[in-house]
Computed example of a mutant assay.
Amino acid sequence: MRFSKPLTVTLVSAALLALPFSGAALADTRTPAPTMTITPQEPTMTITTAQPPHSDRDKTQDRRNKKNSLAVSVSPGRVRAGDSYTVTINAKGVSSGTATVTSPEGKTYRVALSGGQATKTLALPAKTKPGSKTVSVKVGNKVATASFTVVGGKQQQRDDHGRGHDGK
Results as ranks from 00 to 15, higher is better:
5 K>Y: 12
7 L>E: 07
12 V>M: 08
15 A>Q: 05
17 L>K: 00
18 A>K: 12
21 F>T: 10
21 F>Q: 06
25 A>T: 05
27 A>Q: 08
27 A>F: 06
29 T>P: 03
32 P>K: 06
35 T>F: 10
39 T>Q: 02
41 Q>H: 01
42 E>Y: 03
43 P>E: 11
46 T>F: 12
47 I>K: 01
48 T>H: 04
53 P>M: 09
54 H>I: 15
56 D>K: 09
65 N>D: 09
65 N>T: 10
76 P>W: 01
84 S>E: 11
85 Y>A: 04
85 Y>W: 00
88 T>C: 00
89 I>K: 02
90 N>Y: 10
93 G>T: 06
99 A>V: 01
105 E>W: 02
108 T>N: 05
111 V>M: 02
112 A>F: 01
114 S>P: 12
116 G>R: 03
116 G>P: 02
117 Q>P: 02
122 L>R: 02
123 A>H: 12
125 P>G: 02
125 P>L: 03
127 K>Q: 07
128 T>D: 08
129 K>W: 04
129 K>N: 04
131 G>T: 01
133 K>T: 08
136 S>Q: 06
139 V>Y: 00
140 G>V: 04
145 T>A: 00
146 A>R: 00
148 F>T: 03
150 V>T: 03
154 K>D: 06
154 K>N: 15
156 Q>V: 12
159 D>C: 04
159 D>E: 11
160 D>E: 09
161 H>T: 14
162 G>A: 07
165 H>G: 09
165 H>D: 11
167 G>Q: 13
